[in-house]
Design a protein around this nucleic acid. Sequence first.
DNA 1: CAATAAAATGGTTACGTAACCATTTTGAGT
DNA 2: ACTCAAAATGGTTACGTAACCATTTTATTG
Lengths: 333, 333
Amino acid sequence: MVSSKDVAKYAGVSQTTVSRVLNTPDRVKEPTYKKVMAAIDELNYIPDANARSLVQQKTDTIALVSGPLFNPFFVETTTSIVNFANENGFKVNVHFSKNENITDTYHSIFENKVDGIILSSILIEDPIFHKLEKSGIPFITYNRKHESNKNFVEMDNEQAGFLAADYLLSLGHETICWVGGPLEVSTFKGRYDGFLRAFQKNGVAVEQERVFLTDTSKEELRKTFLKMEQLKDKPTAIYAATDAIAIQMMDFYISAGYRVPEDISIIGIDNVEIGQHASINLTTVGISSSANLGQLAIETLIDMICEKNNPCIQITKAVRLFERKTTMARRRV
Amino acid sequence: MVSSKDVAKYAGVSQTTVSRVLNTPDRVKEPTYKKVMAAIDELNYIPDANARSLVQQKTDTIALVSGPLFNPFFVETTTSIVNFANENGFKVNVHFSKNENITDTYHSIFENKVDGIILSSILIEDPIFHKLEKSGIPFITYNRKHESNKNFVEMDNEQAGFLAADYLLSLGHETICWVGGPLEVSTFKGRYDGFLRAFQKNGVAVEQERVFLTDTSKEELRKTFLKMEQLKDKPTAIYAATDAIAIQMMDFYISAGYRVPEDISIIGIDNVEIGQHASINLTTVGISSSANLGQLAIETLIDMICEKNNPCIQITKAVRLFERKTTMARRRV
DNA sequence: CAATAAAATGGTTACGTAACCATTTTGAGT
DNA sequence: ACTCAAAATGGTTACGTAACCATTTTATTG
């Protein structure tokens, strides 16, 4: 590989001067500059970012640990995060969190001495949080938060859960199934708590047999759908804890011959882009403003990296209902 | 930062031995191993991958230059690429190609001395291709290819275009609008050529006023929709060059009160996952097998990196029609 | 127990860069 | 022409690791 030393020799200057030509061209005479640039061109020299990282003790790299892209929510956040980071001179090492590889993932991230970490996959009691704090690397979680209540960007999940459930109840639905994810995740816990609050407020009892905790995979959702079909009292409305779940459940119901919303109402949470498609028109709860949690998180993280101070970030965005076409008043038979 | 030297001092061994404990533990005595591991634990030592890269002259990093995720096709490829690379010990630097930043993107990639590059964004006559060849870094393009006909993984775009157009014609449609992307892109060029061939075969003339070249953005597609509405002969069928375009056009049509397929037939190409959703049910053309172009490309690229030989990869997958619910025979008025 | 091979460990170096300090050159003011 | 500050350039070093070769220790064999 051609190095700055080779360029220096070729141009008849010192390696230091080559470095200066590239980094502080103002501090170099015009003819020297031209000589060196000519040599760089001639030799096809490209500086080595890794070597630079070593001496500068920064990598200009951010690690992203995102939820899977089959959830459209993460499509939008990943886009925002990668683009904004790149525009600000950061490379992004992307990882999609799966339980199997989580140790390897963090191992790789720590070895890379990234300048910052942005992650969605954190559990309420996740031990990795303390490792992150101990590492001293600026980090932020988005969409989910840790029990320590530090460094997160989220929507008001409890309120979102409440709004969604309250809306279904207000439409006259009583046989409502909750389809969500693991309650070890703050997002699902919050949305579930809001669901409970709405039922309590409306004086309706929550039947545990209508609460379905899944890993949000298509396979488990299919099993959930089949289980719901076996209930004595089939639901008249589905409260999906995320739009991704809602959209998947819609697919199962429509494929099975149901009409949405005439035969079954479905509501989600997140207000993802695809839910606004005219063929889907998913009623949902989402952030009131047009803010994107990923965008907020990456902006905050880059601030933390540049300012070198790590304030405690706690951002919870307000939510509202987006009434669309997958819900309607319960039909009295 | 705590280095292997610190660990060595703490454990009373040489830095070389610390390195051996981590990389070739078999070549170290049991008590030494324990001593060193204890020191590593005590000091929270984590090796620096950048320093390792410097001396090993490899980064275990792959650069991905993907099309934007608002195209579901790239959602699927990005998932496959990132996951497969990570599973095989590679980090992935992700970039989403936009015209503004393309120079910076490649600058960053080359500075990082990545072990391989996988990219979708290449034009037929793209000068970057020669830079890539000159760099000596293994690389592969997926979904698109360069005129030099080297190192690509694609579907048979010409045949896909033919099948889609031929199908619409066979349904009796004559007023067909083509909505595609720039013909400097092999994918669109191929699909357009297939479209022409189908028209020729069926003895139908192609009206240039019904050919719409866009940048595939939502904004331009909206303008295209409005233009189509102004045509004297409104189309009875839309041939979208990608599923992403088809799904977007569906949204416009349905929002405007059209029924699909009764009022307008729509066909796409790519066979993306979301197109199979019961609410969308997009008729499309896609790869016959269940292969994923991104997966194929990343497997090939990692092979190239590991084998250190750069054979000329030319993979074109066969395609077939997926008949679903967005197309129907033309209604005679 | 000596000879000797094998195993274990250590010392030094290079990787490519920017920081740092030292030296030379330039130009302004007298 | 002479002084002296400023500008330009050079030399050396550190960053943290693995490769490489050298040395010491251990085990094996006659």
